[in-house]
Computed example of a mutant assay.
Amino acid sequence: MNPTERTAVELAIRYERSQGRKVTYVGDGWPSPGLAGEVREWGQGRHPGARSFTCDLVSREPDGSFARLIEVKGKGSRRSSVPIIDRQREAMLGLGPDWWLYVVLDCDTTPVLVVVREPSRLPWKLITPARELLEGRFRGVGDEGKWGTMPADVLAAGEQVDVPS
């Protein structure tokens, strides 16, 4: 994880904890098959047909119930688009209000957390189409399509929140 991503994830975790929720980082893979299964069962129960549950953070209420699945994006500045890949877009579209986007802008100076519920409302544009693969070849992250939306759109649709130190 690079320093910008680390700043963004740490800020998002601090915010979730300040709201009384319990957070598990899953950005580098599910820490247990049990958690992955629980998330899949919860997500499919709420959104039949959902196939992707990718996220960086799994947030739970104090009683242990799932609160939200969170994708975290960090930007050093506000000049370039906020990207997501195909599997993140699929989760966003399939899980609706249960999949959140937390964007931390200005990570290199004074980080600002913007929380977006239902980020499918943002104007996403295809930046790079998915790479065509030979039959039977596994699609890796680098082979997926890349979508982007601008920080100004994130700010307009989201809520800038205060994060306690």
Rank of each mutant, 00 (worst) to 15 (best):
L133V: 03
S52K: 13
Q160M: 12
K73F: 03
P48H: 02
F138D: 07
V9M: 03
E61N: 15
A156G: 08
T24N: 02
E71A: 12
P111D: 03
L126F: 03
W124H: 09
E16Y: 00
T109Y: 10
V104P: 06
V141A: 02
L126M: 02
W99S: 03
P123F: 09
F138Y: 13
A12F: 05
L11N: 09
I84W: 03
V39R: 02
D108C: 02
P119E: 08
R51F: 05
E144C: 03
V72E: 06
V141E: 07
C107Q: 11
S52A: 11
A157S: 04
V82Y: 01
D153R: 07
E144I: 00
W99R: 02
I84R: 11
K73N: 00
G76V: 04
R21M: 03
W147C: 01
D56E: 14
T4Y: 13
R137T: 09
L11Y: 09
L105P: 06
R68T: 12
E61T: 14
G96C: 05
F138K: 04
R40Q: 11
R131Y: 01
R79L: 08
D143I: 00
V116T: 14
D106R: 11
R87A: 00
D86T: 13
D153K: 13
I85R: 15
R78T: 15
V154I: 13
S80P: 01
E135L: 10
R137A: 04
V115F: 08
D63Y: 03
L126T: 11
K146F: 00
V112D: 04
E16D: 08
E61L: 15
P62W: 09
W42L: 07
S65F: 01
P151W: 06
A91K: 02
E41L: 13
K146A: 12
G76S: 15
V154R: 06
L122S: 12
I85D: 10
T109Q: 08
H47P: 00
S59C: 14
R6P: 00
A152F: 12
R137M: 08
D106T: 00
E38S: 06
W100P: 04
I85V: 14
G29A: 10
N2G: 15
P33V: 11
P3S: 10
G20C: 08
